[in-house]
Lab assay of single mutants.
Amino acid sequence: DEEIEKWIETLLKRNISLRVNGKDLEIGSEEFKEWVEKFIKEV
């Protein structure tokens, strides 16, 4: 979905790490990609 890709790009540009389930996810890491894929499937 384009919306999500733009959102991810924005996050990448800002180099933010997300806190997911109490863990810091490094943007661009494998864990982050897995989380994004799960997130996309749920939406």
Rank of each mutant, 00 (worst) to 15 (best):
Glu3Gly: 08
Glu5Ala: 13
Leu25Lys: 02
Glu9Ser: 08
Gly28His: 03
Glu34Ile: 14
Trp35Asn: 00
Glu9Val: 09
Lys33Val: 06
Glu3Arg: 11
Lys23Pro: 01
Arg19Asp: 01
Asp24Phe: 12
Lys13Ala: 09
Glu34Asn: 12
Lys23His: 08
Asn15Ser: 12
Ile8Lys: 01
Ser17Glu: 04
Leu25Asn: 02
Glu26Gln: 10
Asn21Cys: 15
Ile16Cys: 15
Glu34Cys: 14
Glu37Asn: 13
Glu26Asn: 07
Phe39Cys: 10
Glu31Leu: 09
Trp7Phe: 08
Trp35Val: 02
Leu12Ser: 03
Leu11Trp: 09
Asn15Leu: 15
Asp24Trp: 12
Glu37Val: 14
Trp7Met: 06
Ile16Glu: 03
Glu9Thr: 09
Glu37Trp: 15
Asn21Glu: 05
Asp1Ala: 12
Asn21Ala: 04
Gly28Arg: 04
Glu9Met: 13
Glu26His: 08
Ser29Trp: 11
Val36Met: 10
Lys41Trp: 06
Leu25Pro: 02
Glu31His: 06
Ser17Gly: 05
Phe39Ile: 09
Arg19His: 06
Glu2Lys: 13
Thr10Ala: 13
Trp7Ser: 01
Lys41Phe: 06
Val36Thr: 02
Phe39Ser: 01
Leu18Arg: 01
Asn21Leu: 11
Glu30His: 11
Ile27Leu: 09
Glu26Ser: 08
Glu2Gly: 10
Arg19Leu: 08
Gly22Phe: 06
Lys6Tyr: 09
Ile4Glu: 02
Leu25Gln: 02
Lys13Phe: 10
Asn15Tyr: 15
Lys13Pro: 01
Gly22Tyr: 07
Arg14Cys: 06
Lys33Ile: 10
Asn21Asp: 06
Lys13His: 05
Leu11Asn: 00
Ile16Gln: 06
Asn21Gln: 08
Glu34Arg: 15
Glu26Val: 13
Ile4Trp: 13
Glu37Gln: 14
Glu26Pro: 08
Ile40His: 03
Gly28Gln: 03
Glu3Val: 10
Glu26Trp: 09
Glu3His: 10
Asp24Gly: 04
Glu2Asn: 10
Leu18Ala: 02
Thr10Arg: 14
Ser17Ala: 09
Asp24Leu: 14
Trp7Gly: 00
Trp7Gln: 01
Gly28Thr: 07
Ser17Thr: 11
Lys41Leu: 06
Lys6Leu: 05
Leu11Val: 05
Lys33Gln: 07
Glu30Arg: 10
Leu18Phe: 09
Trp35Ala: 04
Thr10Asp: 08
Ile8Glu: 01
Asn21Ile: 06
Asp24Tyr: 12
Glu9Tyr: 10
Phe32Thr: 01
Asp24Ser: 08
Asn15Met: 15
Ser17Pro: 10
Lys41Gly: 02
Glu34Phe: 14
Asn21Tyr: 07
Arg19Glu: 03
Leu11Gly: 00
Ile40Ala: 04
Phe32Pro: 00
Asp1Val: 12
Ile8Phe: 06
Lys6Phe: 09
Glu9Asp: 06
Leu11Gln: 01
Lys13Thr: 05
Glu2Thr: 11
Phe32Gly: 01
Val43Cys: 15
Asp1Trp: 14
Lys38Val: 07
